[in-house]
Design a binder for these strands. Structure first.
Lengths: 194, 194
DNA sequence: ATTATCTATAGATCTATAGATAATGC
DNA sequence: ATTATCTATAGATCTATAGATAATGC
């Protein structure tokens, strides 16, 4: 049928993107291969020329989307740009578009139920993300600890803001997390300035 | 068949308990009625004498388990007992037994995909939990905001600690969250003492 | 007679596979 | 001839329902 030289590479990328969105929107367990392939404008059977199994797809999706997230967050260079990234992470826009958003916020409880091999992939990327943030917060183990605490809070707050139907409570949760995170980051950088 | 006067009430409670554990262990979407009923030592068909649908069960489970969690957390009376509750929440024991643990940590992304009616039930309980914690942190909107930030951080840290296979990183995440939460709580009570 | 549960099954999924089809590039 | 995708389907789920069964309590 109609295909060009690197059709397969392109198709694989399309399937990855479709799956990545579906997983974050509907969850991993609730997303079927057929639906993902429909989003990628392909048929069910074509899937198995690209991935061995659904588990294989899940690994590939996490590897890919966490790599992208790391690159996005890596552009933040100092305390101020971290706070800007944080405000964007905890914005109503991010809350309302989980399909394009943070994989951790959309998928963490499901990730914790995946096979160890997949969770090792998750851990590798999480480490790099926390290392990157930790470096900008001081670089030592105390900066890294603050990065872990701030990331935990951001993920939890986004999830709570998404679960709650009331816009008031939802917005208050996001704002509380922004403020508390700023306090933690400022106190960490003050510690360093002394 | 073998049944006593309040057999049905008892059965309903058994199904609720079995479902509540299964949901937290395997996720809502990945838990089937048949498996839940097997855990409750009943057959598939008997389910529909107790609940209209799986969605109906999910609402009932959330209503029930969040009510229990609120009661558990309600026993914390002052700042010190809140910190004790926090250390138990962020303990390896809680991390390693999601089936008996916090419904939010196990289920939040799935909750955010449930029908609005179910999310309203979630919101009702979350409000009461945050109100309870906020009161012990000062009672005003600033105390409530700190409660929301601390709860967000605890939920996120527990999820991250569960997802990561390395015990070192997992423990470091839990410890970072304990420390950061204590800092936020202390700074909130200092604000009040001034 | 009423009630709680069980048996059996319909109908709609889901993952995965085997073989057919139709384009490209030699 | 090779390759990417499609068609068709097997076999295992899943939710939900209808009717049978067997106990209790009148």
């Amino acid at each position: 049928m109609r295909y060009n030289k690197d059709q397969k590479v392109k198709s694989r990328a399309e399937i990855l993107l479709a799956a990545s969105r579906r997983f974050r929107t509907d969850g991993i367990a609730a997303s079927g291969i057929a639906g993902i392939m429909e989003d990628a404008a392909k048929t069910n059977g074509a899937f198995y020329a690209h991935f061995e199994s659904k588990d294989d797809l899940v690994s590939a999706v996490l590897d890919d989307s966490l790599e992208r997230q790391k690159e996005d967050l890596g552009s933040a260079r100092d305390k101020d740009s971290i706070i800007a990234a944080l405000e964007s992470y905890l914005s109503p826009a991010h809350r309302d578009h989980p399909g394009d958003g943070c994989p951790s916020a959309a998928l963490l409880p499901e990730i914790s139920r995946l096979p160890r091999s997949t969770r090792l992939i998750y851990e590798k990327h999480l480490k790099e993300i926390l290392d990157g943030l930790g470096e900008k917060m001081g670089g030592d183990s105390s900066g890294m600890a603050t990065a872990a605490a701030v990331f935990s809070m951001a993920v939890g707050a986004l999830q709570l803001a998404r679960a709650v139907p009331s816009d008031d409570l939802s917005g208050m949760i996001l704002q509380s997390a922004v403020q508390a995170a700023e306090q933690l980051i400022t106190s960490e950088s003050d510690k360093r300035a002394r």
